[in-house]
Structure formats: C-alpha cells, structure tokens
Amino acid sequence: MTTKQRGRPRSFDRPTALEQATMAFWEHGYETTSVSDLTRVMGISAPSLYAAFGDKKALFEEVVESYAVNYGAYGGRAFAEEPTARGALGRMLVEAADVFTDPSHPRGCLMISAATNCSNPEVEEALRARRASNLASFEERIRRGVDAGELPAGTDTGTLARFYGAVLQGMSQQARDGATRAELEAIGETAMRAWPTAGGPDGVRQATRSL
C-alpha cells in the first residue's frame, strides 16, 4: 500500500499578492471588496491570506502603507525638493494629475476613495487621520512660505491648506469619473491662480504665467 505524502503548502510571492490586493481595494473600496474577491485576485486561499496578512482590516492597513510609499509619495517629494511653497503645492497638483489618471492602475487616490460607504469606523478613522496629516503638512509648508516672505504675513494658512486639499480630493473624484490628465492639470493651474503672493495682484498674475 502506497502512503500518500503530505504536500507542502503552495507558496506565493507576498509582494505581488499585496500589490494585487492594493489594486482591488483601490478599484472597489474597502467595504465592497470581500475576502473572496481578495483571495481570487491574489491567487491564494483564505487560510493563506489570514496566515500571511491577518484579517481583511489588517491587510488593508498594509495596503495603505504600501500605497503611500509606491503611489502616494509624490507630495512628499514635491515638498522636499521644491524651494518655494507655491512650487511645492503646484507640483503636487501636477503630479497628482499624472498619478490619478495613470492607465496602469485604478484611477484617483486610494486614500480618498477607499472609505466611501465604509461601515468600519476604525478603517474610516484611519483614512481620515491620514488625510488630516496631509492637510497639516500642506499648512506647515505654507506657513514656512509666509515666514520666508513668499506670502503675505496675514495669510490664513489653515484655510489655504484646506482649499488645496479640497482641490486634490476633487481631482481624485474627477479622475474616477473619467477626467483626462490634461483636464486635471487645468484644474490644478486654475487653483494656483488663487495663490496669494506678497506682491499683490500683479504678483499673482506673474506667478500664474510662470506655472
């Protein structure tokens, strides 16, 4: 009698599986992406998913971290590399237009769209906290611009940060609705015309022409 040997569990490429999960959550959001959807696109069984990533919420948390590094880092780069606050915010919007419409992945921003109709308060709050952190970084960069004399001393840095945050969120939804990269870039250019400058109205027009 032949004894059947127990086979080893099928291995899988973890980074590839995480990327596939990222695409699923990005396209469909947290709420409507089921565990069966995830196991199908990742090519693994439910027990393997739980063993490798934990539950759906834990997997999504890892997806968000991966997304921030691989797709959402354009803002941080712009803020680190551009010498002016206006240059940093303007570049962020231009690069967002590129990322949001890249045909190699779902449209828009995962952190903006993934919590739509989400019934998990912890997931919703985690994404809200990330968006709030982004707004805080906008305000901090704008405040540095005020201190450097790039913007008027009385600039409402909080409101200006929220304005560009709203533009970014709107661009994400526009991308989900089919807007082209050129159309989103035009939105960004229009938004930058609202940028206050220490030089007054003439300075605004000159800065707009140089964008």
Rank of each mutant, 00 (worst) to 15 (best):
G29V: 10
E31T: 12
T32N: 09
T32Q: 10
T33V: 12
S34Y: 12
V35K: 02
V35G: 02
V35M: 08
V35H: 04
S36P: 05
S36T: 15
L38I: 12
L38T: 09
T39A: 01
R40F: 03
R40L: 04
R40K: 07
G43W: 09
S45F: 02
S45W: 01
S45M: 01
A46W: 08
P47C: 14
L49H: 05
Y50G: 04
Y50N: 05
Y50A: 03
A51K: 07
A52K: 00
A52M: 06
G54V: 04
D55Y: 06
D55W: 07
D55T: 08
K56W: 06
K57R: 15
K57E: 13
K57F: 13
K57Q: 15
A58I: 01
A58G: 04
A58L: 02
L59Y: 03
L59D: 03
E61G: 08
E61N: 07
E62W: 08
E62Y: 00
E62T: 05
E62L: 08
V64T: 11
E65M: 06
E65R: 15
E65D: 10
S66Y: 09
Y67T: 10
Y67Q: 07
V69L: 13
N70V: 08
Y71R: 15
Y71P: 01
G72D: 05
Y74T: 02
Y74G: 05
Y74Q: 14
G75L: 13
R77K: 12
A78R: 11
A78I: 03
F79Q: 08
F79Y: 11
F79S: 09
A80N: 07
E81S: 12
P83S: 06
P83R: 07
T84V: 01
A85D: 06
A85K: 05
A85S: 07
R86A: 02
R86V: 06
R86M: 04
A88T: 02
A88R: 04
A88D: 01
M92G: 02
L93Y: 14
V94D: 14
V94M: 10
V94L: 09
E95M: 11
A96P: 01
D98L: 12
V99A: 10
T101I: 14
T101H: 11
D102F: 12
D102M: 13
C109E: 11
L110M: 15
M111L: 14
M111F: 04
M111S: 10
I112C: 07
I112Y: 05
S113W: 01
A114E: 09
A115N: 09
A115Q: 12
T116P: 00
T116V: 11
C118T: 13
N120W: 10
P121Y: 10
P121I: 14
P121K: 13
E122V: 15
E122Y: 14
E122Q: 14
V123H: 01
V123K: 01
E124R: 12
E124V: 09
E124K: 08
E124Q: 14
A126L: 05
L127S: 06
R128Y: 12
R128V: 05
R130C: 01
R130K: 15
R131P: 03
S133V: 10
S133T: 13
A136P: 03
A136I: 06
S137L: 13
F138V: 03
F138W: 08
F138G: 00
E139T: 03
E140H: 11
R141Y: 11
R141W: 08
R141F: 04
R143F: 00
